[in-house]
Amino acid sequence: MLELFSYGDTGWGDEILMGLATTMKLAVATLPVGMIIGFLIAFAAMSGIRAVRYVGVGYTTIMRGLPEILTLFVVYNGAGLLLNSLIKWWNPEAEGTDFSPFLAGVIALAMVFGAFAAEVIRGAYNSLDKGQIEAAAAVGMTPQQTFWRIKLPQLWRFALPGIGNLWINMLKDTALVSVIALDDLMRMTKVAVGVTKQPFTFYLVACLIYWVLCVLSEMILSRMERHANRGVRRA
């Protein structure tokens, strides 16, 4: 049993670890992109210009209503077609290329993450204490100073629980990229199943690995939350 998971040519331990590395790389690459999209969309949804506000609200509404796997296929196939037609337009003799599944995964996951993050950020922004912002203006801070010194540190505190949940959801959603031929944990498990004919054992191990990742994330997040709230007076 255990030699199935050993490290080396006979076991699948190294293959599964490599898949896990791809999964982690994907999740870590998606996080900053998703946060940037989230901030942009949140500010768009709160904008004073009506057209921009509609774009922001429309984006969150649509992206949150679509299955993640549909978004992934739209990005993967759509961007692939777009890229190929661009190449054809540039150089009609060129061969068609495949859009990188890793990039498609990052873009699709970040688009979904960003839509949900925008709502979290917007909620956090609305929880900011108005009096503090007025106080900042009263002592003569510029809007930029107010943002960096008063708003952002507290935004972090209010948004952290929501963003933490989104991180865990996104970590689980990375499993979807196995469908577009990216060698993540899920796909390496599938490869191992194909050879060993032990589907239950291997998929159970994959599930357990994801479970450990999620539980670890939860533990780290609760420490981060405690740290973020260290200066808050308890009732």
Binding site: I168, K172, T189, C207, C214
Partner: peptide, 23 residues
């Protein structure tokens, strides 16, 4: 509850659909 929430649905689907073949 912790297991279900901590694993991707796709993995759960594979575990049941393909995994049942082992038994």
């Amino acid at each position: 509850v912790s297991f279900v929430r901590g694993t991707p649905i796709l993995a759960q689907l594979f575990l049941v659909f393909y995994g049942s073949g082992q038994f």
